[in-house]
Structures are given as C-alpha cells and as structure tokens.
Design a protein around this nucleic acid. Sequence first.
DNA 1: CGCGGCCTTGAGAAATGTCAACTTACGTGG
DNA 2: CCACGTAAGTTGACATTTCTCAAGGCCGCG
Lengths: 251, 251
Amino acid sequence: MSLENVRSFNLQRAEGGICRTSGMSVASCTRCKVRALAICDALRPEEVNDLDEIVRHVSLDSRTTFIREDDPASVVYTISDGTVRFYRMLADGRRQIFGFGMPSDFIGLTSGGRFTFSADAVTDVALCRMERGSFERLLGEKPHLMHRLHDYATHELVLAQEQMLVIGRRTAAARVCAFLLAMRDRLARQRGPSVMLPLPMSRLDIADYLGLTIETVSRIFSKLARERVILIIPDGIRFLDQETIRRRAED
Amino acid sequence: MSLENVRSFNLQRAEGGICRTSGMSVASCTRCKVRALAICDALRPEEVNDLDEIVRHVSLDSRTTFIREDDPASVVYTISDGTVRFYRMLADGRRQIFGFGMPSDFIGLTSGGRFTFSADAVTDVALCRMERGSFERLLGEKPHLMHRLHDYATHELVLAQEQMLVIGRRTAAARVCAFLLAMRDRLARQRGPSVMLPLPMSRLDIADYLGLTIETVSRIFSKLARERVILIIPDGIRFLDQETIRRRAED
DNA sequence: CGCGGCCTTGAGAAATGTCAACTTACGTGG
DNA sequence: CCACGTAAGTTGACATTTCTCAAGGCCGCG
C-alpha cells in the first residue's frame, strides 16, 4: 500500500452548504415522476400537499459534494434525477463507496445527529431537500410514512450486508459481475429490463465500491469484453451473455 | 481459492424451529437486566406489561442454528444473554459473518418477509421471542417503540457501512485491530471499560467477519502478542498497548 | 491416556496491488 | 475546424499481501 495514496477527485464545492436552485425546481410533488418508487409513495394523494410545503427542489452540477462526513445532519433529501455516490475516506486517501444513489432513493438515514458519510453528485442531479425538523414532524404525523421509511432503512441494511459478502468473500471478477447484475436489476425496477446498462460512474468509483483498484476493474472489464460477455460502450456496457455473468458473479 | 471449501461447523439443529424453553424463562421483562439498552426501553414502565404478554423467553445451547436464510421471518427476538453470529454462506462453503449479536440486540430486521441471513448461538444464549404479528401490532400502537426500532435499524446500517470500509479498504492487521477496538467499545457500553476483552467467538468466526482466513487472523494475533500489544488469554485477550492498536487499526 | 477440535506456524502459490507508459476521448481556444 | 491539454481508461511488468496446503501443538473431555 502506498504511504500517500494521492488522487485528484476534481470536485466542486457546494456554496454555503446549499446548492443553486434550478429553473425546474418549482415543480410540485404531485407531478413527480419517481414518487411511486420513493418513500413519498406512502402518502395518500391528498397528503402530498403536505410534502410540497416542506420540500425545496435543488439542482447540483456533477462532481458537487453536498454532504460531508461529520456535518450536522440537518437536512434530508430524495433524489429525483441523476446519480449520487456515498462514501467515507481514510486519512491517506483510500475511499470506500457505500453505494450509488439513484432517482427515488432517500438520503438522510443517520445516527447521532451527524452524517457518517460524504455524498457527491456523480452526474448532474436533482434533489428534493427537506429540513430534518420539518421532515421529522411529518413523520410524527404520518405513521405510514414512518413505516415506509423504516422499510427503506431495513432494505438498505440488507443491501449493505449483501455488499459485505461481495467485498469480503468474492473474487475480483465475481465482484465486478455482481455489480453489473445489481445495477441492471436496479435500473430494471425503474425503467424496465434492458441489455443496455448505462454506468455514469467512473472505473475509479466502481473500484472504490468493490474494494479493488482501478487497474483490476479495468482488466476485468477488458477480459469480459474480449470474451464477448459484455460490450463496452461510452458510459456503459451492453450485456451479451448474461448467463456467463451470473455464473461468474458466484466465484 | 479452493474449489470445495469444505469446513465442519459442527452445528446443532434447533428442533421444530423453536428451542427448548429454559427454567429461567418465566422471568418478566420488568426485571430484565438489558432492557435499558434494548429497544424495549422505548416503553414506559407501565407499558412493559404489554411486552410480557407477547414475549416467550427461550434458551439455546451454543452452536444452535435458530434462523436460516430464506426462512419466513415470522418471529423477532431480543438477545438477553450470550453471543450470536449472523451470516450468509455461498454454495462452496465460503461464509461472511455480518455481525455478532450481544445482549440487548434486536434480531428481526428483514425485508420481503424472509430472513436474508442465518443465525447461530456462539455461546449458550437466552432470547426473548415474539411472533412478528404481535410485535408489529405493538409497533402500531406505540409510536415511540417504532421510532426506537427505526433508530436501531439506522444504527445497524451505519455499522454495516463502517464494516464495508474495514473489509474493503483496510489491511489484514488493521481489520483485526479495528475488530478488537469495536468489540471493546461495545462491551464497555454494557459493562463499563476494561482492558480485558472476552472473545467468545472462534478465530474462524473472526476471520469470516473480517473477510480473511483463519491462518491470517491467527498470525496477526500472534504478532500482536509477540510485540506485547495484547496478551492472548483463554477465550479472550488483554489489551497491553491500546495506543498501538488504535494506530494499527488505521492502516 | 487418547481423541477431536481449535489454534499456530511455515513454505510456497495465487490473487491483487503498484508503478509506469501509453491510448483514447473530449472540451477549449487559437 | 484543428491542435492541444487534460482526465479517464488500458495494458504490461513486477511487487506484495494474503491465501493455500500441510504439519504439528495445545487443551479439554470421555
């Protein structure tokens, strides 16, 4: 391991902790395209107005860091568009990405009043921002929302445990294949099944999610492409032989 | 990686899914020693009777498997005594332990109606068992309990992410040191600080928790002992130089 | 006293990381 | 529109960590 693991992440800084508000941001939750998948779905149509009261729609440029580890967790978000990465870093620059947030994902499960992770926009991103106080008041009034949030947290826990298994006990090639399948399944739930898989995150992001180096990830992508299991296209891949990927994900 | 990763885990089987009921099992939640640390603490003293109505106290011999992956998640538990391991296994015998359950821990955060992990008693164990239906009814009646459970789930998620960082980005020695410190802190919350750390789980369990092999864990324990950083004692260790362990946990 | 389970240690193998060079893609300014 | 500069990705050669396999030690229990 190199002593100083210096890497340039080339990040923007979100001004004053809040991000520029986009022109699109006045849209109402009523017309939200991802509501059915988000925790907001727990509210009945007539309750959605209560959401509009506390939501501020914000847009972030790609590479913007909008949550920093140890920040007071005074806001929560729902992602309405784009991809986000959640991570922690070690003093020497090593980074572990905990997951990628996609539209409908909730951001704000924290313990002890502070964020235990940082978050950046991987692509341009649109978020619904709520003050934590307002959100918790709403939770108190709407048991269904509380219940839905708890289900979400539990699901995230199951995913985190699955990822522990992937990182702790699978070979490098299996991790990459498991990642591709998990991303495909996630996207399918949003937009239906497809052999095209957009991958907005970089190889370095994938490496830091899987506990590998960028070179190892790159070699495995190349090998899969050479064997005609996937086709590498700009910002994504196309699945050519899903059965082989499924098999490799087990190793 | 060996093709067949055969290991003998030497397990008992819990009869009929339920375990022998011990003589001690009639004790009431009112006198429970771990209630203050468990989610039950969310209930006011006069509400604890509602718990007694739905709790069955059960005892398990060490090595008993009492939850199997994919079982319908029809019960939940709180651990009142002993140590439990939670894990998933791959087809070839590789195992990832997600965590060790200790007194006051809740068991039953599941998504989709089935357990996504297995659980064994590491030591003899005492559990409070509740039918999931009864427990969820209670949750519905007691918003404070629901809130407390959600906090518990969120905390578990934060711990799982921390463990992802440990497994994905730390060296073998750092993983072992981080494990020792985490176990110490956890025990300290229960019984106050101590330089004595009992380790009821085997080296194999520790290896499967840290994504390492038993040999690697053993070598690191030996090295720490040779350097007088820890003292290895039967079923545990004694900390001799905590500063060094803290430093090593960062590598 | 002997057996089985767990732990330890050593030697060599394998997987993955490191370092360095090179290619490709893309946006910007001349 | 081209040329350049930068960031991202790829590939090769070599280093290192961790794993694998094998042997032996320790200890509690029948």
